Amino acid sequence: METNDHILLGCPFARAAWFGSNLSFSMPDGESASLPTMIQNWDKMISLSKQNWSPEEVFLRAQWAFDEYYSLTRHHHHHGEESQPGSILPPQLTWKQPEIGHMKINCDAALPLEPTGGGLGVVIRNQRGEILWATSIPVSFFDALLGEFWVVRSTLIDAKDLELTHIIVESDNATVVDTLNHQLPSLPVRAMGFIQDIHSLANQFETCQFVHISRGANQVAHTLARKALSLASKTD
């Protein structure tokens, strides 16, 4: 029977997930995977440079990711949908084409572990899934939430420049989407400037929707945002 340590740290998928994360952590060969040992030897096993995340913070972020995946899959099964044979992700975890006459805009922000700046990624696609616009934008921000609001504002500015009229803006940050849809009891004060700008810009479109999606459905924008971390200027 598989143990929790093996599932979370030792199996090939878990090892790949840890290594592919921002931590770039790789379990040393020949060592047994153990959560207590990992936490006790945190400083020796993982180097986090200038931004020191505690083990609790890292596992909390992992819990957030799991909660998002669980809520989406639970919704999927609740509605009686069946996964297609051979599919890796349920349908709602993949990008979907917008309705005819609408443009779908996916956006994401990336912030490295070291406080050296950040990156924004935006991709615009039509109802056939064709990419009309894609950009990576290196910017300087040190708060992940502000970066997520920043990229939404940049998205709307690009959409106005392209003279789009009916848009659907997708983000994998639930706080941002809920805030813009007036679904939170209080607004993040530090982002008020961005929020006001976004609402002002949104009112200039005939229709503008803000939709929360999973990271899997936002992969192209995420990749563009990560690409921006290595750029000196905006690229289209």
Rank of each mutant, 00 (worst) to 15 (best):
T3E: 09
N4T: 12
G10N: 13
P12R: 14
F13V: 14
R15N: 04
R15P: 00
A16G: 09
F19R: 15
F19I: 03
F19A: 13
S21P: 04
S21E: 09
N22W: 05
N22L: 13
S24I: 07
S24A: 14
F25I: 08
P28L: 13
G30V: 12
E31K: 13
A33M: 06
A33S: 14
N41D: 12
K44A: 11
S49L: 07
Q51Y: 14
W53L: 15
W53G: 03
P55K: 12
E56Q: 15
E57Q: 15
F59I: 13
L60E: 11
A62G: 13
A65F: 06
D67N: 15
D67Y: 02
E68T: 12
Y69R: 08
Y70A: 07
S71D: 14
R74G: 01
H76Y: 15
H79K: 10
H79M: 10
E81V: 04
S83K: 15
P85Y: 15
S87I: 00
I88A: 07
Q92I: 15
Q92G: 01
Q92F: 09
T94A: 06
T94D: 00
W95P: 00
K96G: 01
K96M: 06
Q97I: 02
G101P: 01
K104F: 03
I105R: 08
N106K: 06
D108Y: 07
L111P: 04
P112Q: 10
L113E: 05
E114R: 11
P115I: 14
P115N: 13
T116V: 09
T116S: 14
G118P: 03
L120C: 13
G121E: 04
V122L: 15
V123W: 04
R125C: 07
R125M: 03
Q127F: 05
Q127Y: 10
I131W: 05
I131F: 07
T135A: 06
S136P: 01
P138G: 01
P138E: 03
V139D: 01
S140W: 03
F141D: 06
A144Y: 04
L146H: 09
G147H: 07
G147Q: 10
V151I: 15
L156C: 01
L156T: 01
I157M: 13
A159L: 07
A159D: 05
D161G: 07
E163D: 10
L164C: 04
T165I: 10
T165F: 01
I167M: 05
V169W: 00
E170F: 02
N173V: 11
T175C: 03
T175W: 04
V177S: 05
T179I: 06
L180H: 11
N181M: 06
S186N: 08
V189M: 05
A191T: 01
I198C: 00
H199C: 09
N203K: 10
N203D: 06
C208D: 01
Q209A: 09
F210T: 03
H212E: 00
H212W: 13
I213L: 02
I213E: 02
A217F: 04
A217W: 02
N218K: 02
V220D: 10
A221S: 08
H222G: 02
R226G: 05
R226K: 15
A228R: 12
S230T: 15
L231V: 06
A232E: 14
A232N: 11
A232C: 06
K234H: 12
D236R: 11
